[in-house]
Nucleic acid binder design. Structure first.
Lengths: 208, 208
DNA sequence: TTATTTTTCTAACTATTATTAGGTAGAATC
DNA sequence: GATTCTACCTAATAATAGTTAGAAAAATAA
């Protein structure tokens, strides 16, 4: 009844696949490479998965689910009087952390999503949508509270904010720098902007 | 002496490759698909290119060069009294435009860069570096002029700004929306931020 | 121990790939 | 008109991919 050995191998295959998908993309990652990384032979993979696409699907789902979980946990730890912007700060931090530190699944997801078979992408789309909606919720709340200017297009904000963060998966090198400055830079840029002096439009907004 | 026919076919191959690389990635784009899109047979491609990698290399280079050219042209058309931020605005606009409108080469470059054979990426890296340096120049100028707050880390700003813009290649649908709102959103977010009221830190900066 | 089930391996099969060798039709040149 | 060059094509090659079938080994149960 106890099938521990089996679970271990299955996890090793997924871990190996996530790592290699992230690094080399889906198409160029062969089952023989995955098997090798997981200390198996290629044929043995089919004891656990029906196809290469099935592995891909599971890696993708795990990638998003981990990040959703991390943000959920982070927000739950916030004090009761936390503002909407506080929650967004937590979400930014957890997103970056999950993406860049414990990142094979999440990073693989971000990196290869657009270059996978369309039937797999199709299936995975719902989960992505869910994640996007959680962000929209956070951002809309902040706007409703008056913490985000009311002219801001929330959808575009989400797309550019996530786009900026996800791009770090392309250039961030864990050995060359800590993650905290990235978090501070993102919040600084998006919350306050980079300009020295508020221009007329912003000044006007403040008079409302 | 006039080899117009040849040039046309060569260009068609490159156009087809850029289009397919952008859409399906490098590995999954076969020479037969490229040939078909360019109205040739696969073997004929070798009359023009020595290998698939050679096509890739040329597509990548063209992608960056077009964007560099567009920005250069845009800045040159600016009046003499344009500010450093004005130039950055132009650079943002041209970057988005080249990426999203005339985008097969540029978009292919952005999308597949991380999943190509490392020797090709190695060769192409210098051009990318050049482009990054042009941005750093623009941003540093603005900071030296006092138009960007002096605490801003210019390298991180470049990485996140380009990351945000490039992400649009993943989600922008030309049929569903105009490009101008994107441009406005990017400048709004990065220049002024999204917050309704400047927080203490920003207020402090303004007192310096 | 023996029997059964779970897990892994070996060795092949089929399809597809980039690449190459050699041919061909027409245009250009002599 | 004969020759050479240009721009392709056809057909084959060798390598590699995902996948499968069946045997071997390891673990578990009897």
């Amino acid at each position: 009844m106890n099938q521990k050995k089996s679970d271990i191998s299955r996890t090793q295959i997924l871990d190996a696949a996530a790592k290699l998908f992230r690094k080399h993309g889906y198409a160029t990652t062969t089952l023989r490479l995955i098997a090798n990384e997981a200390n198996l032979k290629a044929g043995s993979i089919y004891y656990y998965f029906g196809s290469k696409e099935e592995i891909l699907g599971e890696v993708l789902d795990i990638g998003i689910q981990r990040i959703i979980q991390a943000i959920q946990d982070g927000i739950n730890q916030l004090p009761a009087n936390a503002t909407a912007l506080d929650k967004i700060r937590v979400a930014i931090r957890e997103h970056l952390h999950t993406l860049l530190k414990y990142g094979d699944y999440t990073s693989a997801n971000i990196r290869i999503y657009k270059q996978i078979p369309s039937n797999v992408r199709q299936k995975h789309r719902a989960l992505r949508r869910t994640y996007a909606e959680e962000w929209d919720q956070l951002l809309n709340d902040a706007q409703a509270q008056g913490e985000i200017r009311k002219e801001v297009d929330i959808t575009l904000l989400r797309l550019f904010l996530l786009g900026a963060m996800n791009s770090a998966a392309e250039w961030y090198n864990p050995r060359r720098g800590k993650l905290e400055p990235l978090f501070e830079a993102v919040t600084e840029f998006f919350f306050d902007g980079i300009k020295s002096i508020p221009d007329k439009r912003q000044a006007r907004d403040q008079l409302d």
